[in-house]
Amino acid sequence: MYQVNFDIADFLTNYWQKKPVVIKQAFKDFHDPISAEELAGLACEEEVASRVILTEQNQWQIIPGPIEDYSAYGEQDWQLLVQAVNHWFPDSIALVEAFRFIPDWRFDDLMVSFATPGGGVGPHIDNYDVFLLQGSGARRWKVGDIGKYRPRNGDTHTALIDDFDPMLEVTLEKGGMLYIPPGFPHCAKTLSTALSYSIGFRAPSQQELFSSLADQLIDQNTGLKRFTSNGEPTSPSCVSTAQQQGLQAMLAELIANETTMQPILGQLLSQNRFELDLCPADEPYTKEMLIEDIGHGAQLCRVGGLKIIQLEADPLNRLFIDGQSHTLPEHLQPLATLLSDNIHLSQAQTSTLLAEPELVTLIVELINSGHMYLAE
């Protein structure tokens, strides 16, 4: 069990998405939920996103996974990064749960790093919020202020920058944590062989929202209204200011339509960037089997990384699960919240859900698709 050792209300008021902060003992008596050997085992898998970063005279070489042999890298100046460890290693899920004071829809993934002395990533700027939690070993972090920085080698498609003047420097040891909002440059150097945990939270960009909107309009064959105007400019090559504003207003009208935007938001915000570890049932699981197993004490769990979200003021009382929409009767809203708020449901909680046929059907569907499973 992991529990944060700081004032959550104070953090949300004074630091969240505002400014970096160091929390020296964010977790008391912290223990690593995964070993270096187990992390290396995940990096062997095709489905798992991983990479090794080599530090060479202030340059960084990236070697994408899967990775099976580390002998060529030596004993210093490299690190292994594995994304979405919470999807593939169940023992790490409890650490992620400690950060659920931030809503699930913002959560991106748990990235775990194994780094040798001297290993690290160069100065870079992330476009998401990140909690950098130190496990075993020690790392030295530098953080700069928001500003205009030149991309390394002029490459605007990378997060790396040339350098920055630090406004904060700290050595993190086991249980210590650094929070960095989007836009603040930072870098790290490993002082002693270390395991580190990056708990990332990401909101959608305008590009992602418009892409999802376009996909929805095409799939549903909606958004077919065309622009009309009362007058035309005298110059044949001119698009008048009034026409420009009218086109923008037509787009704004579409975005302001909750009937259009709510399913788009629900589907987008419940999806994951990284693959889930889904294991669909070999043979169809039935309602009768579910009721029997729960009666024998089984616990209902969701797979690591699965998001089940609700939209406030949703007139259709939908659950959005891994990009799919599930509409439930209005009177089941409290039970829908019970299902979406809990990653693990006790026998008593699940029995409450099973009193409603619509929820039995949904749970069986989720078990058969591999999104949920039963544990002893």
Rank of each mutant, 00 (worst) to 15 (best):
E169H: 08
L339V: 13
L300K: 03
G266W: 13
D32A: 07
G119L: 06
I63H: 14
R100L: 02
A159Q: 14
L133Y: 08
F99A: 04
G323P: 10
A9W: 06
V130K: 00
P166L: 06
A188F: 12
I218V: 13
T158Y: 00
G119R: 05
L81F: 08
V85P: 12
W88D: 05
I264V: 11
D145Q: 07
K287M: 08
L12K: 11
A98S: 11
A72L: 13
T327E: 15
T234R: 14
T352G: 01
Q79K: 07
A115F: 12
F184W: 09
F101A: 09
L290F: 02
G323L: 12
E365V: 01
A252N: 14
Y70W: 10
L12M: 14
D77G: 03
T352N: 11
L110M: 10
K174P: 05
V4G: 14
T352C: 14
R140F: 10
G297A: 12
F99H: 02
E208R: 15
L290Y: 01
V4D: 13
E365D: 15
Q207A: 14
D108P: 04
P263V: 06
N221P: 15
S235C: 08
E75P: 07
E68N: 08
L366M: 14
T13R: 13
I8S: 01
D277R: 03
L335V: 00
G41W: 12
D10I: 11
Y149T: 13
P185W: 04
L110I: 09
P263T: 05
D322R: 00
L168T: 11
G295N: 08
A336K: 09
A43W: 02
L247M: 00
Y15L: 10
N317C: 11
F101W: 09
N257S: 12
S237L: 09
N317T: 12
A256W: 01
V52M: 08
L359E: 00
T350Y: 01
F107L: 13
N58F: 10
G305S: 07
L345E: 03
D293W: 00
R302F: 04
T327G: 15
E376N: 00
D282Y: 00
S198D: 15
Q17Y: 06
A281W: 02
S237Q: 13
D29N: 10
S237P: 07
A281I: 02
F210M: 15
